[in-house]
Amino acid sequence: MISTSLTPKLRTVKVLALESIGPDLEQVVSFLRCFPCLEKLYIEVMFLSC
């Protein structure tokens, strides 16, 4: 995930889909604080194989 500056208009988002490489719950939680009215969240976590 990439941190960005969010405008107040984005606070009205009802459905959000996140795509992340590797599990990073701390970043997901901090990102979700920008969307207090969120009703549905879809997360896809991709794992990189070595």
Score class of each variant (00 low, 15 high):
1 M>F: 09
2 I>S: 12
2 I>M: 11
3 S>V: 02
4 T>I: 04
5 S>V: 00
5 S>G: 03
6 L>W: 03
6 L>G: 11
7 T>R: 15
8 P>Q: 10
8 P>E: 08
9 K>P: 12
9 K>L: 14
10 L>M: 12
11 R>A: 15
12 T>Y: 10
13 V>L: 13
14 K>P: 04
14 K>Y: 00
16 L>Q: 03
16 L>E: 01
16 L>F: 11
17 A>R: 14
18 L>H: 04
18 L>I: 14
18 L>E: 09
19 E>M: 13
20 S>E: 13
21 I>A: 12
22 G>V: 01
22 G>K: 01
22 G>H: 04
23 P>W: 13
23 P>Q: 13
23 P>R: 10
24 D>K: 07
25 L>E: 15
28 V>H: 00
28 V>M: 06
29 V>L: 07
29 V>A: 08
31 F>H: 05
31 F>Q: 12
32 L>T: 04
35 F>S: 04
35 F>D: 07
35 F>T: 01
36 P>K: 02
37 C>F: 05
37 C>E: 09
38 L>H: 02
38 L>Q: 01
39 E>K: 05
40 K>M: 07
40 K>S: 03
43 I>L: 10
44 E>I: 09
45 V>R: 06
45 V>L: 08
45 V>M: 05
45 V>G: 00
46 M>H: 11
46 M>D: 06
47 F>I: 00
47 F>C: 08
47 F>W: 08
49 S>E: 13
49 S>T: 10
49 S>L: 12
49 S>W: 10
50 C>T: 10
50 C>S: 09
